[in-house]
Amino acid sequence: MQGRVLIVAGSDSGGGAGIQADIKTVTALNGYAMTAITALTAQNTQGVFGIHEVPPDFIRQQMRLVLEDIGADCIKTGMLHKTAVIETVCEALAAYAPKTPLVVDPVMVSQSGHRLLDPAAMDALKRDLIVRATVLTPNLPEAELLTGCTIRDIDDMRHVGHMLLTLGPAAVLMKGGHMDGETVIDLLVTEQETLAMEAPRIDTGSNHGTGCTLASALAVGLAQGLALRAAVERARAYVREALRTAPHYGTGSGPLNHAHTVRDFAAQP
């Protein structure tokens, strides 16, 4: 086991996204996952039906206790739904992990369309959190909300990716899965280069939690000392195989197969 990852995000009772997907991903890639839970959600493959908020002071306490005792090689944020939560998380980062690499997944809307970020918190997200990011990992709808631009093609993706760099992150991983076409193109954008990563689209209805999973797979790669490009490439390969071998649970958008890297000990004598 190598690479300590603290995940600051919401819980998904259905297990396909959020904290549950994050823990599975980090563990499947041989890292050590820790958590600071920001909200509890009642959801399944058909959608989000309820959100129970965690008090900001308790979020800070979770982060402080983990970071002071165990430490972290990378931190990943997911659902931070209110301005007070974002501000608290940023204060804790500054106090307890100011130099730790940070992967920011700007979770705003669930796959079923349920809003997971208070619109009033957008300024805090951009002003306080994204500026700290080692890597920002927006999907295309999130990138459009963050910039106010419409993304229609790969040129728009490049333009918006560079716009997002001006918010302060060291790198932006633009996830292109929402764009139509038989090929999915993700862009890794830095000040030095823009790298396009292409792969055939996997046609499946079991794609719940892909964003959480990719960001956590990237975070554990950075925690294990991989260079940024290598960490992104491994994360994308992990997610693609998790999509390809998804178990097709539930009647809506089903979960991925996070365990595809795990050896079946039950089958051993």
Rank of each mutant, 00 (worst) to 15 (best):
M122K: 14
P56Q: 09
S110N: 09
R229S: 02
G15L: 03
T213S: 13
E144A: 07
K175P: 01
I23C: 00
E191G: 00
A121L: 06
M63V: 13
L195I: 15
A259W: 13
L146D: 10
E241I: 03
H81C: 02
G50F: 05
V8D: 01
D123V: 07
P55F: 01
H260G: 02
G209P: 07
N207R: 15
L164H: 11
G18L: 03
M1Q: 10
I154T: 14
V189H: 04
P101E: 05
T88H: 04
S13Q: 07
T204D: 08
P98E: 08
V26D: 00
A72N: 10
Q224H: 12
A227H: 13
Q20H: 05
V26C: 01
P119L: 04
T251V: 06
T204G: 05
I202P: 06
Q268W: 14
L187P: 04
D22Q: 00
Q2I: 05
A21I: 02
T194L: 00
L218Y: 11
R60Q: 11
A121Y: 11
I86D: 01
T134L: 02
M122L: 15
P269R: 09
H178V: 07
A215K: 07
G168A: 03
L187V: 10
V160Q: 06
L188Q: 12
L222H: 12
L165S: 10
V239M: 03
T210A: 09
A267C: 09
D69A: 04
